[in-house]
Design a protein around this nucleic acid. Sequence first.
DNA 1: AGCTTATTCAGATAAGATGG
DNA 2: CCATCTTATCTGAATAAGCT
Length: 260
Amino acid sequence: MGKRLKQVYDAFLVLDVEATCVEGSDFAYPNEIIEWPVCLLRWKDANVKGKTRELEIVAEFRSFVRPTWRPQLSEFCQALTGITQEQVDSASTFPEVLQDFRKFLEEHELLDEAGHRLARFCFCSDGPYDIRDFVVKQCFISKIPVPAWLSGDVMDVRRVVGEWHDANTAAAVERRQVNVGAFPLPRRMTFPIPRQLHALGLEPFVGRQHSGIDDTRNICRLVIELARRGWRLEPNTAINPNRRWPWMGKRGKVLEEYYS
DNA sequence: AGCTTATTCAGATAAGATGG
DNA sequence: CCATCTTATCTGAATAAGCT
């Protein structure tokens, strides 16, 4: 059981986007975001000294997003994410959804109208990809800058769970004791969400895997449990908003020669 | 001591995995 | 086709050990 801890952040925004893909596409593909699900977590037990342990979901934002470069979803993508063509057809484009999301952040007193931070908040996702890759790609395609409030503080929850696992499991502790002194030292374990849940002693995955909102809610369970166990939650992922991929042409153009 | 061979260790390099 | 992280493999220097 964790002790109460002075935590750095007031709020956490757990995010797990879904994006377009085709069978066999690799990490350089111009993925377009098609679902933007976010849960807002806040402390519910901060004492006078600001020490906390209990996080709770206080709000959810969820919107599908209509892709513009390749508006038609592949069969593969629909099967993977469970998202239908109709759902994206009737959705807004990314810049519009981002505006709505910004309003959400203002309503919850995380940003002011000028986009300044009103509280310390940190985005959380499973793996480093969501903001580092998908958001950066999407902003290029949408011809908009990556908002500063989105690229600052990012925590890869999968990695944190791995670090927690290394530091706390019997196997890892034993390994460390046996190998006093000279050994390659801590190999960090990382694994998919269902096994992360198990590692933290939680009940199995709830909902449908690769559904953005369900993934997001399960990541929330991980973050809440890490906090409950007294683990400090802080950013561990750098974002380069100007990162470029080979298919990026001038002024938001996707070079078509890469994809027939 | 002088030489050779083995062992260890650290750093470099190569290879593999990676989410939607 | 990118970038990053992790693991495995290689390499070379330093060290240790064995031998005459």
